[in-house]
Design a protein around this nucleic acid. Structure first.
Lengths: 165, 165
DNA sequence: ATAACTGCTTGCAAACCGCAACCACTCTGG
DNA sequence: CCAGAGTGGTTGCGGTTTGCAAGCAGTTAT
């Protein structure tokens, strides 16, 4: 980790925390892929991250206050969970997804999530963040009667598939 | 430049285009700082980018379709302007700024823009993008009577500087 | 004619990335 | 009790990227 920021600019601060080839990918898999464990992140990675890189990124994300490490002892299954700062990267993910969708060629299956996140807008992001707070931080959702964001994402996805497109 | 994407995920696609320590900083200075020329970007950089890094980032951004290079011949003042894809990074900038504002320590003067961008929401982003399309792409704004977003941002910045704090 | 400005390039050391192999430890089934 | 699979990593090594300082060919201003 670097010792002091290059400047006091908020955009620069975020770039220093997340601006590399892997941090956002790891975070994406934790948020949308539900991955919690080292081996999960390593084996099911779409992009094929190497174990030493994953190790260093996880350390950096914990040090940067985006993830928390729950150690269960040597050789025993530990877990990484999101912090509040980690949960709040959801709008960044949505913005990155929208841009990639428009300006890069992507595969249909992997694009659905970004499309739904864009169509759902800030309301859906807030629902997703509420749900992440529940599963990662143990904070009950503000409105438990509301359908879960993940449910809405799946429902909309299945509808999109049914529509053929 | 890399030859083929690591995956078809839109988030990954954006990370591959912008996920390094400098690309977003350069783009930020073009968008919010109004910089158009190599020496401008080099000398007035808040973070102190090196000339060879700036050179390589500009090439990558042009190759990636985010900037256009207008060459005026050797030794003559050329210019870099935003493409439509470049203009559409504004929502990403806003999301990065909001996160940095909340989860990192920033200086007052440099935070003002991010604050205003957050308060203004998607409407202000659209205004700013309209204005960028005008100055960089020559596309007239849809509503010329509306106050310019850049004026609001610049005014807020200069007021914050004047206030010292 | 001189000085300053133009957008870079080059050289070199340090840091980071990517790949493959390896490791100490635990848990599970027989 | 023991073998085998699973746990979260570390180590070594070569290639790429970054950071710093200096230099360079051509143009513009004085």
């Amino acid at each position: 980790m670097r010792d002091e920021p290059r400047s006091g600019c908020p955009i620069n601060a975020t770039v220093e925390a997340l601006g590399d080839r892997w941090s956002l990918i790891v975070l994406r898999d934790v948020i949308f892929g539900g991955r919690r464990h080292f081996r999960d992140l390593l084996a099911h990675s779409e992009e094929g991250i190497a174990s030493n890189i994953l190790s260093s990124r996880l350390k950096a994300l914990v040090a940067g206050g985006l993830l928390t490490r729950h150690d269960a002892g040597r050789g025993r299954r530990g877990a990484y969970t999101l912090t509040e700062a980690g949960v709040q990267t959801v709008p960044i993910m949505a913005a990155l997804g929208s841009w990639g969708l428009r300006h890069r060629t992507t595969t249909r299956e992997l694009s659905v999530r970004a499309e739904l996140l864009e169509q759902g807008g800030p309301e859906l992001w807030a629902d997703l963040m509420d749900e992440l707070r529940e599963t990662h931080l143990g904070i009950p959702r503000s409105d438990p009667d509301r359908p879960r964001a993940s449910e809405r994402l799946r429902a909309a996805y299945e509808q999109a598939v049914a529509e053929g497109r």
